[in-house]
Design a protein around this nucleic acid. Structure first.
Length: 491
RNA sequence: GCCGAUGUAGCUUAAUGGUAAAGCAGAGCCCUCAUAAAGCUCGGAAGGAGGUUCAAUUCCUCCCAUCGGCACCA
């Protein structure tokens, strides 16, 4: 296989930047980073994209509430997301902002024009109950007993008719079903795919893809050829996946990267990615993404994250206290990749002490101490006996990553660590006086550790680097140098 | 309410139509190279009720609980 020339284009969801990032964003960033690093280590050319959904009305409202100019507000929040990525050691190749007028605006307008050219965009008037206080539309069942919104009781809602542009989603129903059933657009985990296919059994209704300037507060991408309307945020935000790699402004770049090999998203936005987005692309006669990886949500101490409970965990504080790798490790190991998971400081510290300090860190420390005296060890003196086992684990690992079961990939690696500890206990190198025998035992352990380091590298890159500083298996010899404990035990 | 998913040891996760596996936590033993680390042993589980089957944790039905979606809200 010629993997050297393969490209791999992965995206995170585009967070809307009306507030600072929380631990859920950290989860998604880290998961994406691991997948990207795995492909990079295979020698593929990788592009990992994130960005900011900045054209949403919520951003405008949040900015107003704070009394800040909208652009300034979203720039500040978007920067906070980018900063989180940096602190987590997450390497984004592109961070595409939705408010970028140079690249993103023309790109979204191009997508619009293509859909319009296909005859899939038409005007229709829409009627709804509008609360002036909230400046949003409400459905009847969202209102209280007297037909008023909960935020502004006593205030009558207005029946507002508005003319918007609609997208002929209904036209793509059959194509979408085929796409998803055949896994041309693969959705993982499996039950998320079922959710979408069952939704697609219902007749699809066309969706509105614009807002009047008044409702959009003159914020967002203008509709091509109609400056009284703005493009609806979802039509626009999804296109960040394309605008970030050149669609509408750099054809060569676009051809190189598109279609995306995978979009990593949270379960709450599955429909937009599995139905609306491919439909827009089909209409525009553009390739659709190949896969969706869907993760769950994080609870804190078993409870939903909520502002009113104030139980949010600040990812920045966590990284500052424990370091990036332990945070990455927890999110990747404790949270099943495609499911909901829980975060608590107690569990975090248990994972840290159990897996990182007593497990990985301790194994490296004991081998480094035992081996330093006889370093360097010539590879001629070593026959790595765990090689066959390593190979099996290697294959299983690849499979778990491809299936978006990152937590299980880590579980496999920790099995190898356990084996390393057991081999040392059995070999009792501290009691061995025969030097050849000692070299054999220690060399073996070093081989195993270097495998662990290689496998663990996409997950906890800084740790892999630290391991290699202490134990490095080269072409000819193994060099061992005892250093500081990689994960000092907590307490 | 409708549609869907999930429910396995104290916790986090596996596998499986035929004796339910692992890690952490707990108890005991043991080693001493290592971060009062490691290793070994032990106890401990399938939400509830039915059904299909020689046999169900696995397939089906119902109920309960949790979660998600129910479309122009990101």
């Amino acid at each position: 296989m010629n993997e050297k020339n393969k490209k791999f284009y992965l995206t995170t969801a585009i967070p809307y930047v009306n507030a600072k990032p929380h631990i859920g964003h950290a989860l998604e960033f880290v998961q994406a980073d691991v997948i990207a690093r795995v492909h990079r280590l295979r020698g593929e050319e990788v592009c990992l994209l994130s960005g900011g959904d900045e054209n949403a009305l919520k951003n405008v409202q949040a900015a107003e509430q704070e009394g800040a100019p909208v652009q300034e507000f979203i720039d500040r929040n978007a920067e906070s997301f980018a900063e989180l990525a940096r602190q987590l050691d997450v390497q984004f190749d592109v961070f595409q902002k939705g408010s970028d007028r140079t690249h993103h605006f023309p790109s979204s307008q191009e997508l619009w024009r293509r859909c319009a050219a296909a005859g899939d965009i038409y005007k229709k008037s829409y009627e709804g109950l509008y609360c002036v206080g909230c400046e949003t539309f409400y459905a009847v069942d969202e209102l209280n007993g007297s037909g008023e919104c909960f935020e502004h009781p006593g205030k009558k809602l207005e029946l507002v008719a508005e003319e918007n542009y609609f997208f002929r989603l209904s036209r793509y129903q059959n194509e979408l079903i085929k796409l998803i059933e055949t896994d041309a657009l693969a959705i993982m985990p499996r039950h998320r795919k079922n959710e979408v296919t069952s939704f697609l059994k219902q007749p699809l209704q066309d969706i509105s893809i614009s807002r009047t300037n008044a409702r959009a507060k003159n914020w967002g991408v203008p509709v091509p050829g109609d400056d009284t309307q703005r493009i609806y945020v979802w039509f626009d935000a999804l296109n960040i996946y394309q605008s970030g790699v050149g669609f509408g402004w750099d054809e060569e770049r676009y051809q190189k990267w598109w279609p995306a090999d995978a979009h990593l998203i949270g379960k709450g936005i599955l429909r937009f990615h599995a139905v609306y987005w491919p439909a827009f692309l089909l209409s525009a006669q553009l390739p659709v993404p190949k896969a969706l990886y869907v993760h769950g949500y994080i609870t804190i101490d078993g409870q939903k994250m909520s502002k009113t409970l104030g139980n949010g965990i600040d990812p920045f504080g966590l990284i500052e206290k424990y370091g990036a790798d332990p945070v990455r490790y927890y999110l990747l190991r404790e949270i099943p990749s495609g499911e909901d998971g829980d975060f608590s400081i107690k569990k975090f510290e248990e994972r840290y002490n159990g897996d990182l300090a007593n497990g990985l860190g301790n194994l490296v420390a004991r081998v480094a101490t035992l081996g330093e005296k006889i370093s360097p060890i010539s590879l001629n003196d070593v026959y790595p006996k765990e090689q066959p086992r390593t190979k099996v684990i290697d294959e299983a690992y690849e499979k778990r990553v491809a299936e978006f079961r990152l937590n299980e990939a880590l579980e496999l690696i920790w099995g190898l660590i356990s084996l390393g500890d057991k081999n040392i206990n059995d070999g009792k190198p501290w009691a061995v006086s025969d030097e050849a025998e000692l070299r054999r035992i220690i060399g073996d352990a070093c081989h195993l550790i270097s495998t662990v380091s290689r496998l663990v590298a996409p997950f906890i890159p800084e740790t892999a680097r630290k391991i290699n500083e202490q134990i490095s298996v080269g072409e000819m010899e193994i060099i061992i140098k005892r250093g500081a404990n990689i994960f000092p035990r907590l307490r």
